[in-house]
């Protein structure tokens, strides 16, 4: 089983790296870019076959280590 975890900055938290990416895209002529936000993708390979139980454990991992709840949110996709 795999878990794909997207970690991103909460809305309202300034993202200087995202702003730099948007600036670079503008310099390249992609003026349709209104804003860019940069996050992380973390993939976990998991043992077991109960997806619900596994997702609950992954949720715990996100809260305890994989994200910082002060500034970040996350979403989990199981496959």
């Amino acid at each position: 089983m795999k878990a794909r975890i997207h970690v991103y900055l909460k809305p309202g938290v300034l993202d200087p790296q995202g702003a730099a990416v948007a600036g670079a895209l503008h310099n390249m002529g992609y003026n349709e870019v209104e804003a860019a936000r940069q996050g992380k993708l973390i993939e976990l390979d998991l043992t077991g076959d109960n997806a619900d139980a596994a997702k609950a454990r992954v949720d715990e991992m996100c809260a305890k280590l994989l994200s910082n709840p002060v500034i970040e949110s996350y979403s989990i996709e199981m496959s």
Binding site: L14, P16, N68, V70, I71
Partner: peptide, 17 residues
């Protein structure tokens, strides 16, 4: 210490990068 939750807040990438 901030990551441990012993202090409030978080330290992020410098605004000027």
């Amino acid at each position: 210490l901030a990551e441990s939750g012993l202090l409030p807040g978080a330290l992020m990438r410098n605004a000027g990068l």
